[in-house]
């Protein structure tokens, strides 16, 4: 433990882990939806920094671009379009919070215990030689080419599906009015 704490990289980890834990709790407990969505930015940005520690540069920047840049904007749109209650007085949680907390604690105990037993003594190299974008490109467009194409197709299908679902259909009366005008 004394060895562990003496490494500067572990200090960086501790700071980021505290930010992630604090912001993560805020995401699931905040009474203000906008605050919860913005706390998710904190979680994701700190996770991207952890990815840099783990020498996964490309994934870190993809996380920042895709999540912080695009998905969060979608969430804010969703919150505002559905005119979610933003005041403090309305409860955003249902009445089964206690059961939910017990389930979450049991999940944490199970996952953390299993990880500790299985990988308790594994050392990894921090900020080692990075996995470059080139390495990743060779792998994505080589060995994983077919999954890559399939996942692109999934994204395209989701895009078309999203547009088709959320498009505003006019009622027949409105349609008739439009053609008259």
């Amino acid at each position: 433990m004394a060895d562990w704490i003496s490494l500067p990289v572990n200090w960086v980890f501790l700071v980021l882990a505290l930010v992630i834990a604090f912001a993560g709790v805020k995401v699931v407990t905040s009474r203000n939806l906008i605050h919860a969505a913005l706390s998710l930015v904190g979680v994701l940005a700190s996770t991207a920094a952890l990815f840099l520690l783990l020498s996964a540069e490309f994934v870190a920047w993809v996380l920042v671009l895709v999540y912080v840049g695009a998905v969060l904007v979608l969430f804010l749109f969703g919150i505002m379009i559905t005119r979610a209650p933003m005041g403090r007085e309305v409860s955003l949680d249902n009445e089964r919070r206690g059961l939910a907390a017990i389930t979450a604690l049991a999940t944490f105990a199970l996952l953390a215990g299993t990880s500790w037993v299985a990988f308790g003594d594994v050392e990894i190299e921090g900020v080692g030689d990075p996995i470059t974008t080139g390495d990743l490109a060779d792998s994505l467009l080589g060995r994983y080419l077919i999954p890559f194409e399939i996942v692109s197709f999934v994204l395209l299908a989701a895009l078309i599906g999203g547009i088709a679902l959320a498009r505003k259909d006019r009622s027949p009366a409105e349609e008739a009015e439009r053609t008259d005008a």
Binding site: L7, I20, L54, F75, N94, A100, A104
Partner: peptide
């Protein structure tokens, strides 16, 4: 660095997600 410190953090994040999934009322 040890591997398990990242696994513990990710367990924490996952169980926070489980809590939110079960306790929240708003679909977003």
């Amino acid at each position: 660095m040890t591997l398990v410190q990242f696994l513990l953090l990710s367990s924490l994040l996952f169980s926070l997600g489980v809590y939110g999934l079960l306790a929240r009322r708003n679909a977003v």
